[in-house]
Write a protein that binds this DNA or RNA. Sequence first.
DNA 1: CTTCATAAAGATTATATATTCTTAAAATGA
DNA 2: TCATTTTAAGAATATATAATCTTTATGAAG
Lengths: 143, 143
Amino acid sequence: MTIIFSKKCEYGLQACLYLAAINTGAVIPSGEIAKQLKIPKEFISKILQSLTTSGLIYSKKGKLGGFSLAKDPSKIKLIDIVTAIDGLQLFEKCVLGFPNCSPDTPCPVHDKWGELRTKAYQMLTDETLDAFTEKTLRKIKNL
Amino acid sequence: MTIIFSKKCEYGLQACLYLAAINTGAVIPSGEIAKQLKIPKEFISKILQSLTTSGLIYSKKGKLGGFSLAKDPSKIKLIDIVTAIDGLQLFEKCVLGFPNCSPDTPCPVHDKWGELRTKAYQMLTDETLDAFTEKTLRKIKNL
DNA sequence: CTTCATAAAGATTATATATTCTTAAAATGA
DNA sequence: TCATTTTAAGAATATATAATCTTTATGAAG
C-alpha cells in the first residue's frame, strides 16, 4: 500500500532525485540506479523509459548506455514527475470518493482537504530537484 | 484511482456519515444505503460487515434487518473508520516510498510531509460524526 | 409453520497495479 | 566485422484491490 503516489511514481521520484543528486551529466545504467536505490532493475527501467517519452529523462542505448535527467535539476520539479506518472487526479478528485465534489456541492471535509491539497501541491512545486541534493545523498547512503 | 483512502474506506466513510446524518436509531438495509449513496449494494454490505466486526456498526439480521451505527455519532470519529478499514499506514509510511523514513534518516520531503500528515490526522480526529450532519445531507441530496 | 427479505460468509470473477521475462535494436570497443 | 552491454518494447506473470455471486442463517410477520 502506498500513501498518495503509486509505486511507479514513488520509484520515479526516487530515481530522479538520485540522478539530480549525483549531478553528473553522464548517463547511469538502470542496474546502477536499481542498486543504489535497492529497487528492482527491470521495474525502474520501465519507469524511466516512460519518463523518457515524457521528456524528463534522456536515455542512451547500447554499451555505456543508461539514463540521465533530460534537463538541469534546477529546471525540474517533483510535480513534473508526479504529473508524468500518476497525473494530477490527486489534486482533482474527492478525498472521500464522492462524485462532483466542488465548492457548490462540497463533501463534508471539502474545505479542510482543500487546504491540505494546496499545501501538498506546494510541497511538489516550491523547489526544484537541485534543492534536495544534500538530503537525497544522505538518505541513499543509509539505505 | 483513489486519493489517500482505499475505495473500501471511502465507501465506509460515506456510509457511516450517512448513518450518522439521518440519525435514526433504527437499522437501515444495505439496499437503502447503496441507493442513497449510489454505490454497489453487495460491496457496501461487505464493508459494513467488517465494520460490524470492528464494533463501529451494529447489524440486525432477517426481515427488517439492516445496519446502524453501534454508538452515538458524537462518539465516533472519521479516524475510527479509517483505522478499522485501511489502518494507520498512511500516517506511518514514507510518502516517497523510502524505507525507514524517520527523523534520523529522513527522506527529502520528510519535514514538509510531516506537517501535512499531522494536519490530515487532525482532519480525521478533531470532530465527531455528528458535526458533519448538515454537510452530509446536502451532499447526498445532490448525488 | 411458512414465507419472505435480509445479513453473513465465503467463493468467484474482474480490474488495476506491480513485477518479471523475453526478444530486438542500438552502440561501443576490440 | 563481431562480441558485449545496454535500453526499448512488449508479453507474460503475480499480486492486490474491487466487485459480484451463491448459499446459508436469521428473524419478522402472516
